[in-house]
Design a binder for these strands. Sequence first.
RNA 1: GCCGGCGUGAUGGAAUUGGCAGACGUGCGGGACUCAAAAUCCCGUGGUGGCAACACCGUAUGGGUUCGACCCCCAUCGCCGGCACCA
Length: 822
Amino acid sequence: MLERYNFGEIEKKWQKKWEDSNSFKVTEDADKEKYYVLEMFPYPSGKLHMGHVRNYSIGDVLARYKRMKGFNVLHPMGYDSFGLPAENAAIKNGTPPAEWTYSNMDEMTKQLKELGLSYDWDRQVATCKPDYYRWMQWIFIQFYKKGLAYKKDNPVNWCPSCQTVLANEQVVDGKCERCKSPVTKKSLSQWYFKITDYADRLLANLDKLPGWPEKVKIMQRNWIGKSHGAQITFPIEGFDKAMDVYTTRADTLYGVTYMVMAPEHPYISELVAGTEYEADVNAYIEKVQHMSDIDRTSTSNEKTGVFIGRYAINPINGKKVPIFISDYVLMGYGTGAIMAVPAHDTRDFDFAKMFDLEIIPVVDPGDPEIDLNNLKEAFVAEGTMINSGFMDGMNNRDAIAAMIKHVEEKGIGKETTNYKLRDWLISRQRYWGTPIPMIYCEDCGWQPEKEENLPVLLPEDVEFTGKGESPIATSKTFQNAVCPCCGKPAKREIDTMDTFLDSSWYFLRYCDALNDKEAFAKDKVDYWMNVDQYIGGVEHAILHLMYARFFQMALYDLGLVSQEEPFENLLTQGMVIKDGAKMSKSLGNVVSPAEIIEKYGADTARLFILFAAPPERELDWSDQGVEGSYRFINRVYRMVYDFTKDYKVTGDAYEIRNDADKNLNYWKNYAVKKVSDDIGTRFNFNTAISTVMELVNEMYKYREGDVNEALFGATVKDLIVMLAPFIPHVAEEMWEHIGAEGSVHDQSWPSYDESALVKDTVEIVVQINGKIKERLDIAGDLSREEMQEVCMNDDKVKALTEGKNVIKVIAVPNKLINIVVK
RNA sequence: GCCGGCGUGAUGGAAUUGGCAGACGUGCGGGACUCAAAAUCCCGUGGUGGCAACACCGUAUGGGUUCGACCCCCAUCGCCGGCACCA
């Protein structure tokens, strides 16, 4: 070890040793307790950013800590390597997506290794590799066979000029973001997963995840959006089909004054065919079709709509009410039609005012301030039923149940549960994704490819023009297939899978990444799963984390895994920001990990990022803070170096000779206790580090006096071991330097001696009426009564309470005394 | 609009959940070392008043509960995030 801290050499040296000895490889070991720590795998954009560094540093500290605690730790890394950017690169500069992706992965792997992360690289997965997507396709087929995958026509955004499907985000003002031509809705045949079948379980199981942040669970609950109500059937005058509506407010059925259908409602064309309303209705539908969902919802108060010339009959009282179409009713939720109660629904109220429709109050607020005959806004709170036949006088919350029961008895409706969650549209008209392993046969319909023919490989004879159909369609051979059922020539599906599928089971593949016989062996998955600690950005709170849960449940139902939920504990790390804003190119506040590693080394980068803030919170990047972390490493390094000039680190046995020894011994043991707790149970790495800093400060102080070689040496040893998870390279270097055996990362985590934590005297606070008046050093571990006695006999306390009436005394052992006086 | 979260020194953040507010780091001030600077080491650093011992004030604001509140309750203000015409 050199006198000066040369991070460049140290980091290179140890990274090579770890790699050469395959230090972090793990295998199943039934005799050891396992721990699976997983960080969300990255998209291989080519460069790591600080968010990655933060994510992986957190995971690495945990992995290294748990390993030292004796766990068999699985800590893998891989790439979510399918996706659009690779395809865009191909369009822009002609590089094949595979080439672009593989070179990015190499670059990122290099950077990850430079951070000194303790991954078992043998288990690396990349979702774009055939040995991964083969099993993705196999899983798809299992889902298909179980009835979880289906193909359905559905309207999607279509740009007639670019000849392509657009995502909602790519439609601006009803126009194509690129060429500005009006976007139409086109019905395209798309593959879906029936995630809605799992809505209830996805919701209910959230309660079985105490290790998840409440925030994420709330977001998922809202996304699933379960609501309880009734479906009620309204006959349409002069029409043979009736109109079903969904409502959570069955209590307001008597207050219905009109009906609204979504513009996409299937009955509309029939209802207006050949009438004087047809032209207006079609014009309105046309207009709505040209709007993106974003625009449809942006003008939230301005209601639009058209009367369709038809009437519905309220089944409860026979009242005839007009039917409108309006874009404020969504086809995708409930039945795509509503009963409108303007008196008690804000949106219906706005619409009724706009079209001058009748408003009938049926819930009385019981508030003299509110004029029921001239409502200024919809009344949506609780009240008493009026104008509602048999329900009059009831509380409206009770009336909901009463009305549901009533409509069920009369056969005009039924109790219903609804979800906001929709089925998962999984097909993409893109090249760089897993081919959907389905074949269309004129005679047999859609058939899954035979499992022995997997993988269905991505074709390479394709063109990337950015126009026309998916590039896969340009392949001369890809679509030609044989029907797995009847053997006749058939056509292969050219759509690929949403990349969220790939990332919905990668944690299972890590358990058995090299298996070429099956997606994963059940016994291996049974050994490693569940993921004990999952770590990633909160931006995945809904999509990825919901899809992965869905996959796990579906695989559980298929008998392929033994648990319903994949992630035992979830930690959502905060963003890395600088100067009060997210790091971004446009703001010019990006700090690249590469430049920090170059200037200070990976250990400093890791230490700073863990020290600057607790993991869930935003982290404010500070160049001066980085300097501070660098200084701290130097400070430790110097101390260890200097100590070994005069002394040796011997065994662990030492004697306590005096107060200074006792104090250092206290700190040594206290730090072990505190750091273990902070890493292992609280994930407060920032306070763990600050404790180690305090210990180092104490060691500097101690060094000024009469040094007990054995004690100081033992403290140095514990110090290096405690620092190892945070700054693994320099810890290893110092460990070698003090002449200790083996790798520091193979050491057991230090234990502490409870008796060393007992102080001879403790400082307690004396309060009078809750105000601190005095601090006293008294013997430690006194009982309440003893404490009180010592305190009341103190001269200052006596003086302060002189002539006052002591009402009561509260004593908290080793902490404080509060004397209440009058 | 609805649902969350957060407001603590100049600053990033501590305070293990109702018991010493401001640990640790940064910055700043002072000292030591040096011809000098950097680095390093040591000391100080919430505010007001006082030579001082000390006193008073202080965790967004206003109230409450409690012997005791950064922590619990009510209201208000501000910032951030999620969802957003879901009937």
